[in-house]
């Protein structure tokens, strides 16, 4: 770890804690399970924090968070619907109508996500909920960028097809 990156654990928690929690929650689709994966991430950080090979603490933590969340996802597959209805992030638009439409759309997407293959689902969540770029996702997952682009695009096309089937007019407004 560089001298500039070497910081006390509390400072690291303050600086990167919300990001770690956001990434874990996005992958697992559940705040409690996301918090559990985030705690696993910080335990690994405490074990490796003096490791000189860590150049970029934020990137390292993000990769570990992704790995911990995927481990938890495979160890304990979700049994219930992910986030609660109406708890979608896009509920902060200025127009109330747009907010409602966005909420409805986010709920629809959440309901459809379990039907996607795991790789597409994880990439889609990391992009839309954790707000990571596809390049960051590719780095975190150890995949090539074109592969991640394909996963994301196919997830979008499949979700759009589901939406078209749900709304016969082809629109969702």
């Amino acid at each position: 770890m560089n001298a500039s990156e070497r910081m006390p654990p509390e400072a690291a928690l303050s600086a990167h804690g919300p990001m770690v929690l956001r990434v874990c929650t996005a992958i697992l689709g559940d705040r409690e399970r996301g918090a559990d994966a985030a705690q696993d991430t910080w335990l690994r950080y405490l074990r490796f924090k003096d490791d000189n090979s860590i150049d970029n603490l934020g990137g390292w933590l993000r990769r570990v968070a992704v790995a911990c969340a995927i481990d938890l996802l495979r160890r304990e597959p979700p049994t219930a619907q992910p986030l609660e209805a109406g708890e979608s992030r896009p509920a902060q638009g200025p127009d109330q109508g747009q907010v409602l439409v966005a909420r409805e759309l986010a709920d629809f997407v959440r309901a459809q996500l379990p039907r996607l293959p795991e790789s597409q689902r994880i990439v889609f969540r990391l992009k839309t909920e954790a707000e990571l770029s596809l390049a960051e996702i590719a780095e975190d997952l150890g995949l090539a960028l074109p592969t991640v682009k394909t996963h994301f695009a196919r997830a979008c096309v499949r979700l759009q097809a589901s939406l078209r089937a749900f709304s016969p007019e082809g629109t969702h407004s």
Partner: peptide, 27 residues
Amino acid sequence: EFAQGIGRLAKLEDPPRADATPPPSVR
């Protein structure tokens, strides 16, 4: 169609990122 469907998720106003410094209680 995509712009009026799933593409809306990309066009929504971005809320403040969670890794921006939140208030102490939230942090």
